[in-house]
Amino acid sequence: MESLHPRVRIVWILTGLLGAVVVGFVVAVVDQLLSSGWLGVAGQSPTASGTVSLSVVAFVVVLVCAVPYSLVHYRVWRFEIQDDALYLERGVITRVKTAVPFVRVQHVDTQRGPVERLLGLASVVVYTAGSRGADVTIPGLRPERASALHDRLRELAIESEEDAV
């Protein structure tokens, strides 16, 4: 079984940081609206320091959850190219094992988001004709590993010529 590149933890933590900023901002806006008597809720006059401390608390709470989550997520993530299927294990709260038979692969993408590019990583996305989970993503791969995987999956999909439906 193969693990992801350790740097993927940084990608996830940065994503978590972004989420924490958004949550902190939303909390600040909602607090301002509520305390200024919006929605008819009886409010005190809005205090700037109260709002700031509240949104900082929200920001810290989300971040404190996101960091261990990312670390555990990395520890759990495993994938493997088996004889006739791509096998993945992942998930922190809900653990999911997935087997994608090569015969069912419709096409394969390699994707690189801005954060991933910054950290020199790439993702491979495998598409099937299925109704649920029609796409399976393997994140956090070194670009050369990603293109090797991409090529390997494409070969395996072509080898098995059966109609993918």
Partner: peptide, 29 residues
Amino acid sequence: RLQTVFTSRTVFQRRLDLATLTADTASST
């Protein structure tokens, strides 16, 4: 007709040693 096969276990299911298995096909919902 099988496509992707998923086995998922939430925290509660892991506690009870249970799992949910989904056998995906190409049919729509």
